[in-house]
Design a protein around this nucleic acid. Sequence first.
DNA 1: ACAGCTATACTTACTAGACGGTATAGTTGA
DNA 2: TCAACTATACCGTCTAGTAAGTATAGCTGT
Lengths: 184, 184
Amino acid sequence: MNSKESHSTRSLILKSANRLVLEEGVSKLTLDNVARLAGVSKGGLLYHFPSKKALILGMIENLISKFNDNVKVNIDDQDNKSGQFLRSYLKSTFTDSNLSKEMNTSLLAAVANNPALLEPIRQHYYQWQQQIEKDGIDPILATIIRLAADGLWYAEFFDLAPPNNQLRSHILERLLQMTKKETM
Amino acid sequence: MNSKESHSTRSLILKSANRLVLEEGVSKLTLDNVARLAGVSKGGLLYHFPSKKALILGMIENLISKFNDNVKVNIDDQDNKSGQFLRSYLKSTFTDSNLSKEMNTSLLAAVANNPALLEPIRQHYYQWQQQIEKDGIDPILATIIRLAADGLWYAEFFDLAPPNNQLRSHILERLLQMTKKETM
DNA sequence: ACAGCTATACTTACTAGACGGTATAGTTGA
DNA sequence: TCAACTATACCGTCTAGTAAGTATAGCTGT
């Protein structure tokens, strides 16, 4: 019970940190606030994450594994055609809005506190880009599709004139179409 | 001479604030650091910007007027065809990398300190999106092009697997092409 | 034509509070 | 009993903001 308790406390802390950034802004991501929201003492938080840096790293690692799992799950086994990875990437970013929000909260937490902490995200992004360029479709078009998906994140997270729901679903449709149209 | 001195000090402060965010990260954007980099005392800084909020607002206003000017300048008068605004928007974001960096430093400064300060950027973004949707080409495609441009910003600013120079210029070329291909 | 006044553009010195992190004592379940 | 975990009190540092003073240029009424 204790070790299970510990594991759930750990993820509760991570969850609370994400909620704080999302609801109150990254400037409110303080050890005291996270501990309060998670319902543990500051000492308890620091038992699980010995420093703020460790906490943010925890957020990032947690997120990367989730996103990678998600991309894998979204890969359609029936779909062996070119553009397969890109379609899964699109589904992951467009469908699971919680996940893409979490991506941004973690990214923001890193950028606001210590940009060096972005390194793990950078490495995974690099891998995704590699896969996108080798996805069987024209790499220029493939990258444009990826950038459009990333741009949507950005627009939605910062609320910078994001497309309304109708336009948004048309965009997803069109982007998926674009992964099928052109072959190399 | 004195009022000119004052004006140049003001823009020196703004410039220093941007440099700090860009080179040291947003966590180093403190009044003391900005003052030191600008070569004035903290009191001197607070004479021009009575609070940190005012400083960040100054960064944002400065940027918006620059970007709007830039989009206007990039509008080709010979080009009266559909997609004109979008082509200018693309040129502004792809060509002037200083400007797009500044966009991100200001945005980051706002987000990291007080997300409410994003409001002026939101309003201008909304206007840009309106113009993009009414630019004479299919609004779905038009928005995809805008989002791809925004995604490029994002990728380059955070160094998240941005396309290399060659791919980058191919992407610009292709996006410009896309503004001409389809008509409404 | 010059003393007195005002506005601008700063500097220096300070304060209250928030923050990350430490130290330490205690609790709890196996 | 011992490891895993939690709570509280505290510390030094950093930060935004305040307060008060200085220097100087340019008016302005007599």
